[in-house]
Design a protein around this nucleic acid. Sequence first.
DNA 1: TGCAATCACTATACCGGTTAAGTGTCAATG
DNA 2: CATTGACACTTAACCGGTATAGTGATTGCA
Lengths: 360, 360
Amino acid sequence: MWVVEKSSRQQRPGSEERTGEAVKRPTIADIARQAGLTKAAVSFALNGQPGVSDQTRTRVLDIARRIGWQPNSAARALSDGRAGAFGLVVDRPAATLGVEPFFMQLISGIQAELSGNKVSLLFTIAEDQAAEIELYRSWWAQRRVDGVFVVDLRVDDRRIAVLEELGMPAVVIGHPSVAGSLPAVWHDDVLVTRTVMEHLVALGHRRIGRVSGVPELRHTQIRTEAFADAAAELGVTVVDVAGDYTGDSGALATEALLRTDPRPTAIVYDNDLMAVSGLGTARRLGVDVPGEVSMVAWEDSPLCELVHPALTALHRDVLTYGMHAASRLLDAERGVRVGNVKDASHELIRRASSGVAPKD
Amino acid sequence: MWVVEKSSRQQRPGSEERTGEAVKRPTIADIARQAGLTKAAVSFALNGQPGVSDQTRTRVLDIARRIGWQPNSAARALSDGRAGAFGLVVDRPAATLGVEPFFMQLISGIQAELSGNKVSLLFTIAEDQAAEIELYRSWWAQRRVDGVFVVDLRVDDRRIAVLEELGMPAVVIGHPSVAGSLPAVWHDDVLVTRTVMEHLVALGHRRIGRVSGVPELRHTQIRTEAFADAAAELGVTVVDVAGDYTGDSGALATEALLRTDPRPTAIVYDNDLMAVSGLGTARRLGVDVPGEVSMVAWEDSPLCELVHPALTALHRDVLTYGMHAASRLLDAERGVRVGNVKDASHELIRRASSGVAPKD
DNA sequence: TGCAATCACTATACCGGTTAAGTGTCAATG
DNA sequence: CATTGACACTTAACCGGTATAGTGATTGCA
């Protein structure tokens, strides 16, 4: 229920032309008139094109600056056939979306790279993958974007084929193995898995629990395999339980793991929220962390430092990740052949939640 | 450091025209040719304009559907003078940004309303308010957006005057008192403050601590005043300490409050993160929650349910909030006189962290 | 001194839509 | 039977940029 109050402002965009100069935005025709030139000459001057004298160019630039001219994006887009914008669509339940700092940081990074290139970012949250694909088709047909960033790769991802079919420039933020012919910016999760496992094994852990993210995501699958491989090589055991990134699932999974016999002496969580929840669950069940069970979160956030004991976590520089993705997409859109980029791996930040394994 | 791998895909947008039909997107000229009509007639048919027979209209629509025509957004924008996009800029340190689900939910809501109207959302994270203002000017000069959503109102907010000067349609998501002539969508924080205070006073609390957000934000100021007023009316004491939404500040503020003598028996936090951190701090100091101190978070999130004891929190429907804001901006942009909208207030969700005040 | 090349522009068309004004055809009407 | 008007279109201009093909004046060189 919402209440409409007193009307306040009169906002009539259509009336701009009538009220005169105040809101009217200048065009190159205005500059041309003031400079006594044609539109073409002004365009040459503004774009550093040859065809005008230095003196004229300076005069044109001065006028442009004085009257605050900026190119009309629609006119330019129509003329040179590029929208000057990239798209990013996320489809995830809103519940898990907001809690993770990942997307905000990613967007910060993307933006940092794009703003210097006068490219904007269209950001949307879609209902499901079908809606996301429809959006791609429609953006492309309408020439609303020049390319897109693809996140949250699925094991069998329908988006890739669609983007390939459309011939739409795109950069995959995720593992190249399911990126088809699209360039990918990615982390080596296999390597990171080894890092975590070695850390835990060095502390004496021999039975390790893992609470995964949703199995449909490709990176979950990759990590699951990597944990199994690392366990085999290091001669230890890994017990997998599937979560879905929510606190609830983290709690349930933790409870299940803590009830197994023998109980794992360490648990790795696929995100910070499940780890925090797992920590609470352990306390509730009277299990000491890290005395009886060590805990590690894959993905760091302020949350990890805030709980007690503070969570050992795998940290990565998402901002830079976003910047790299953006710079790749800029290249791809400009027609540069683009390969995959492997970004720096997650770094293990040791905090209080992981320690030596308890003696039997 | 990042590694460039093998080159993968050849992506040359410029080569589309040469390679032929595969990627070429149809225009109304294509439809006109196939239908044996002029562009104008096709345009009338497509837009439900009079001037063509029903038979012709059907034929045109059939062709359009068959060849997958969608209007070129740039051409339409150039012609009718509207960009078909709104903007949302946030300037906050990335650290506090990501952790709060607020923006993601807000964007979800905005998007839900906009997508039905074929309007896109340009989303950007800016360095500071100056950068944000520059972005507004540039978006407007370039006609990139038809209007913007303004969030995080400051006590003395320079953005309002700029938007008014530009004559740019805008909706303020925040209190009308600093929105100038711009329409606002807002919550009645004064009312909410009373709700919280009455809840706590009913539980016997007479000395209440509050950890505020940054004082530069208008809503912080409003709440601070409201707490003081409510305290006076209810005959209790409120002790304010300023935080900055980070976990660290929440911990410090909590420690400060718990050291005062007499110590407050309840603490209200301006966001969930500081509340969670405060909870941890209390435990660290050996102060029982809610036995010795009750805690309430202003702003609910999965986090609040996840900690122990679960946090009593003020919940609001951010999705709907975003939808209302979007619908207002659509109106404003279309020239409808728009007033302020008061949205439903926060709802107090009672959980384990608040209880009766301890006896002296 | 004559012809070509260069310079600094102008004229014009185009991108893909929308829209005001004009045209030819046919049926209704006085 | 001539006039009117409605209908179903076409013509052409416009939105604000970019790009290509002229054009007149000056300069260079044989």
